[in-house]
């Protein structure tokens, strides 16, 4: 299993606990929070790759928490869970910048898949970033090499002349 930094946020503690147990069995070791506030507090200390966020919670609800996460940790992907059977909450979540949404009761495997997809997305982004960095570096090197080459050319043409 990939080493995903995962945070589960839901006011239904029993639900989270069971999820954690099942995930641990699959080699995922998620952190847990029982409210939006707690979620943000945890994020302060430990940045996460994926946050699974319940939409309806007492206090700050999922939709409210999302902008805070996106603001401070733009790389973190948020996956919404909704007990509400209406797609509206989920759609709102995605519009606000969530990765996707799932309705409770969830298919566990589907959740895992989604988490992986989110993580993959992050990885992809990271890779892209790295690639871009690499490319930028390469470009820099290319420019430098070019310069040297042109300098070399210059020197090369001079040398035969000078040879004469």
């Amino acid at each position: 299993m990939k080493n995903i930094r995962l945070l589960l946020v839901d006011d239904e503690i029993n639900f989270v606990k069971t999820l954690v147990k099942r995930m641990e069995k699959r080699g995922l070791f998620p952190d847990q929070a029982a409210s939006g506030e707690e979620c943000l507090a945890i994020l302060e200390k430990k940045p996460m790759d994926v946050v699974v966020l319940d939409v309806k919670m007492p206090g700050m609800d999922g939709i409210e928490v999302l902008p805070h996460i996106k603001e401070k940790y733009p790389k973190t992907e948020v996956l919404f869970l909704t007990g509400h059977a209406s797609p509206q909450d989920g759609v709102d979540g995605i519009k606000a910048g969530g990765f996707d949404y799932l309705t409770k009761p969830i298919e566990f495997e589907q959740l895992i898949t989604k988490i992986n997809q989110a993580y993959d997305k992050i990885r992809l982004m990271e890779e892209k970033e790295k690639e871009a960095e690499f490319r930028a570096g390469m470009e820099q090197q290319m420019i430098a090499a070019e310069r040297l080459a042109s300098l070399g050319t210059l020197a090369g043409t001079d040398t035969p002349k000078g040879g004469f």
Binding site: E12, G83, P105
Partner: peptide, 20 residues
């Protein structure tokens, strides 16, 4: 109907855990 989904979710997850 709203609220029932949460307990059902827990039940299903617990069942999933037993399955695990």
């Amino acid at each position: 109907a709203h609220e029932i989904n949460n307990p059902v979710a827990i039940m299903v997850e617990e069942a999933g855990w037993i399955e695990d």
